[in-house]
Amino acid sequence: MDGIHDLGGMQGFGPVDVDHGGHVTMADWENRMWAIARTTGAPDWTVDWWRHITERLPPHVYLDVPYFEKWMLTYTTGFITSGVFSAEDLLADRDPTANSPDAPRHDLTEVLEQLRNGTSSTRKDIPDAPRFTVGQPVRTQADVYADHTRLPRYARGRTGTIIAHHGAYLLPDLNARGVKKHEHHYTVSFTAKELWGAEASAVDTVKLDLWESYLVQTG
């Protein structure tokens, strides 16, 4: 989907609001939303479906609302479209004394342990041999038909060089629809000139991590 989320290379944005500090300060509601995101969800959600829900925000909302408000809208829409609760449930008055007696209580030590054990990867060995090898030039697909894809607009129909093969990972385009299919996965390096034209730096590059079906053989 050519959505508003696909920002790479889009022009008209102003300077970056830089900071040099090490500690990120967040408002209480932002922290709460982050914690909700780490602890709840529907059992059959996939990370790509979750990303696609965000991509479906109205474009003006996507650009306007604070970052963690997008998360609130994404999680809420996710719960509603999974039948966990309805929009009316959310908008109704709440019982202020509710305290979730049956929900699991975890303290800091348990949370830190869960975090350490939460490391994950969808990498898997598959019988198909990789179609491309390191050093090989490839071109990216010019057209994308999937609702969700990780091939950004700015890198479509461009020629680059495979610089790494990582094995097979879940293809996001299908994972966003709840369909699990592993596909070989590569890092592809593009010159700045290939992506942005003759006036770009002669030495700069952009690297993207791309799935095999995003790529076609050149020449």
Partner: peptide, 29 residues
């Protein structure tokens, strides 16, 4: 946005999906 997140948290707590104390621990982590 603070009211939006509060509405979501309150509903999740009411439904027994998460405990506020657990959210506190994640924030601290």
């Amino acid at each position: 946005p603070a009211l939006r997140v509060k509405a979501l948290e309150s509903l999740l707590v009411e439904r027994g999906m998460v405990a506020p104390e657990t959210l506190d621990a994640w924030v601290e982590a």
